[in-house]
């Protein structure tokens, strides 16, 4: 059986796994019990989550076309048979807007 969470420090330590849903049901319950009684931790959870979404939005850079072209030129010089005709003919829309698992 998981011990109750009495201190915010324990709550913060578990937060990463909590928002990923990888805590055990007992640990999640203990953390939620603490949250129900602790407004500073509720604020902490909200700002922790907001940190992720803000950073993701700010850092989702798209690769400039010129850089794609220069990379292709570079690799064409070094990789025998390296062909870039397909992607030049039909450029794909950038898939940078939504992070995805690769």
């Amino acid at each position: 059986m998981t011990s109750p969470i009495h201190h915010c420090k324990e709550c913060v330590e578990l937060l990463g796994e909590y928002i990923e849903g990888t805590l055990s049901p007992e640990q999640s319950k203990a953390l939620e019990d603490h949250l129900s009684l602790c407004p500073p931790c509720i604020t902490f959870v909200r700002t922790y989550k907001a940190t992720r979404s803000l950073c993701r939005a700010a850092l989702a850079a798209q690769m400039p076309r010129e850089l794609m072209s220069s990379l292709k030129s570079f690799l064409s010089e070094h990789v025998p048979g390296f062909s870039c005709s397909k992607s030049d003919a039909a450029p794909r829309p950038p898939s940078d807007s939504e992070p995805k698992k690769v």
Binding site: H7, C8, K9, P40, C41, T43, F44, T47
Partner: peptide, 8 residues
């Protein structure tokens, strides 16, 4: 081991 109240 407690957090101080902070701005949301």
């Amino acid at each position: 081991g407690y957090l101080d109240p902070a701005g949301d």
